[in-house]
Simulated assay, not measured.
Amino acid sequence: KYKMMHHSLSPRPMHVSSADCSRRHISDMSLALGTLNHVSFVVADVAIAAQFYRDVLGFTLVRRPSSFHFDGCWLWRHGLGVHLIRGTPVNKDKSSIVPQSNHLSFLAQDLDTVERQLDDFRIKYVVQRCCEDGVEMRQLFFHDPDNHMIEVCNCDEFPLCLLEGGGDTRHDSSGESDASTFGESDTSMSLCHPPPGQHECAC
């Protein structure tokens, strides 16, 4: 059984002086988190859902604590875990694919290949395109067997342009820079511009 922890909706106020804010970026006061570990989905049939995540998205089954007293399974790939929990999924209209909804997104190695593979799997999907500053971004959206939205995209083509600065450049455990903690001097980096040699898109 889970122990329910009840927290007040009105926590003790934090007193932060303007001097404190000038010395450190606001993100320094956020939770001491590492990288994203996993996402969980409630599914009607664990076996069917697991087959989709294995066969279509390439995830691998991994060990799950045997002390859990509810059905489910754990899968892993791309440095991310997907935990499936047997239950009653939120009823959604699978006939309608709406990109502007909650979804799990993966970068594609080659979007044209992914699109052909989705056709081979006979999975219904929609394509969304946008063009800005000469960069074309393409996104493919489709559902898993329980109507959870999946996206495959080339969003890494869109330049990362920081909207706030402060603090020192930091790196997470994977060695990647944490964009939320770049200093103001870093916001002028070429990340705010299309990559060198980027051609104007036709959209």
Rank of each mutant, 00 (worst) to 15 (best):
Y2F: 13
Y2Q: 12
M4F: 00
M5A: 06
H6I: 09
S8K: 05
S8L: 03
S10V: 03
H15F: 15
V16P: 04
S17G: 09
S22W: 14
S22K: 15
M29V: 08
M29P: 00
S30L: 14
L31A: 14
L31C: 00
L33I: 09
G34A: 11
N37D: 15
H38N: 14
V39A: 05
V43R: 01
A44R: 11
A47N: 05
A47R: 03
A47C: 02
A49T: 05
V56H: 05
V62M: 08
S67Q: 14
F70E: 05
F70P: 06
F70R: 09
F70Y: 13
L75Y: 01
V82F: 06
H83W: 00
L84I: 09
L84E: 10
R86Q: 15
G87W: 08
G87H: 03
P89Y: 01
P89L: 04
N91C: 02
N91Q: 15
D93V: 01
K94S: 07
S96M: 11
S96N: 07
I97L: 06
P99E: 15
P99F: 07
Q100T: 11
Q100S: 11
L104M: 15
L104W: 02
F106K: 09
F106W: 08
F106C: 07
F106T: 02
L107S: 12
L107Y: 13
A108F: 13
D110S: 09
T113I: 13
V114D: 12
V114I: 10
V114P: 01
D120G: 00
R122D: 11
K124C: 08
Y125I: 01
V127G: 01
R129Y: 03
E132K: 08
E132G: 03
D133Q: 09
D133A: 09
E136A: 10
M137H: 04
Q139A: 10
L140S: 02
L140V: 14
F141I: 05
F142G: 04
P145G: 04
M149T: 11
M149K: 01
M149V: 04
I150L: 07
V152N: 02
N154E: 07
N154I: 07
E157S: 06
P159A: 06
L160M: 10
L163Q: 12
G166T: 04
G166W: 09
H171N: 05
G175Y: 08
G175V: 04
E176L: 08
S177I: 14
S177K: 06
A179P: 06
A179L: 08
S180R: 13
S180K: 10
T181R: 08
F182I: 15
G183L: 00
G183Y: 14
M189K: 05
S190L: 11
G197I: 08
E200A: 07
E200Y: 04
